[in-house]
């Protein structure tokens, strides 16, 4: 299993220029193996969506500056262009969005949209492509798929649309699926269906999945590993079990407490004070220190070192340095 990682970020920095400069990603390094599901957990402004967009090369080139390496299957994708880029997008990597109603084209039927993608990437004829589309609708467990092929997106319910979106994303058998909060807009009883479907499809197709979410529970349901993001960097990463049962970074612990799972009524919540930084300057110290109950002078002295706790569990916090334990 330890061949080339499927995805490898090496010191990724993304800066948005414009009226206000925003240092959205600040030296992110992360790798994931093929066939693995990685939950990218973070709150708004943590840079989780920007990371996905970088991976699909969807950032506006004029307003963004990208530094560092992003490798997918060993190829540096930051230099792709033209035909290679379109073969990469949709062929090797595809994405499921938060709002299927916005991501699906309202003027084409579901069948046409899936078939069109298959024809473009696989070079097969229309008839064969429709066969693939039908097969995909079956695999995402859409009832009466023959009829649904001829449906337009607005004729489907939210959950069905998200299933169709997943079918579209997986039609070309990508090696990597990017999921950007795909269940956030759905109701609870529909959300769990989609999460379990994604888990099954991942096993069936063996692709790698990066699942971006702000909801720890959702991340636990789908991921093998979790990476917690804060202020454009990863503060803690490890297997789902390690991160949930043995969280080391104060931010991860705060997030777990804030989920209110098992909170006692009328007891004061252990809330993280303050709000995330605006990132107008690149961080020169621990970004979480201003909100951290355990902050020490060292936290403000420089960027926190990353400590490897073994078994792929690593934390960016000075408290994990041997000098403190």
């Amino acid at each position: 299993m330890t061949g080339t990682p499927l995805v490898e970020f090496n010191g990724l920095k993304v800066k948005f220029k414009g009226e206000r400069t925003v240092h959205a990603i600040n030296g992110l390094s992360l790798s994931m193996q093929a066939g693995e599901t990685l939950g990218l957990l973070g709150e708004s402004g943590s840079g989780k969506s920007v990371t996905l967009k970088t991976l699909l090369r969807l950032l506006p080139p004029r307003r963004s500056e990208i530094e560092g390496e992003v490798r997918v299957n060993g190829t540096d994708i930051t230099t792709l262009s033209g035909r290679a880029l379109s073969a990469y997008r949709g062929g090797e990597v595809s994405m499921v969005f938060q709002e299927p109603a916005l991501a699906l084209d309202p003027v084409y039927t579901i069948g046409d949209q899936i078939a069109e993608t298959v024809m473009r990437h696989k070079g097969v004829g229309r008839f064969a492509a429709m066969e693939v589309a039908l097969d995909m609708l079956n695999r995402v467990r859409i009832p009466s798929p023959e009829r649904r092929l001829k449906n337009f997106p607005h004729e489907m319910s939210g959950g069905m649309r998200q299933r169709a979106m997943i079918a579209l994303a997986l039609a070309c058998r990508p090696k990597l699926l990017l999921a950007d909060e795909p269940t956030t807009a759905l109701d609870a009883t529909v959300q769990i269906q989609i999460l379990l479907l994604l888990r099954e499809l991942q096993r069936e197709f063996g692709m790698g999945v990066i699942f971006v979410t702000h909801d720890i529970g959702v991340a636990v349901e789908v991921s093998d590993r979790i990476a917690v993001m804060y202020a454009g960097n990863i503060v803690e990463t490890g297997t789902t079990r390690d991160v949930i049962k043995n969280p080391r970074h104060p931010y991860t612990r705060g997030l777990l407490a804030a989920n209110l799972h098992g909170a006692v009524k009328d007891e004061r919540l252990d809330a993280i004070p303050g709000s995330p930084p605006a990132l107008e300057e690149p961080p020169s110290a621990c970004s979480f220190a201003p909100r951290c109950a355990f902050a020490r002078p060292q936290c403000l002295a420089g960027l926190p070192p990353v400590t490897d706790l073994g078994a792929g569990h690593s934390v960016a916090c000075v408290l994990e340095q041997p000098a403190f334990s």
């Binding site: 930084p277 201003p290 902050a295």
Partner: peptide, 16 residues
């Protein structure tokens, strides 16, 4: 590791 700390925690910056 102890929760007690004397470090003055600066206020989180606010967008102005």
């Amino acid at each position: 590791m102890s929760a007690a700390t004397d470090t003055v925690v600066p206020e989180a910056p606010v967008i102005t």
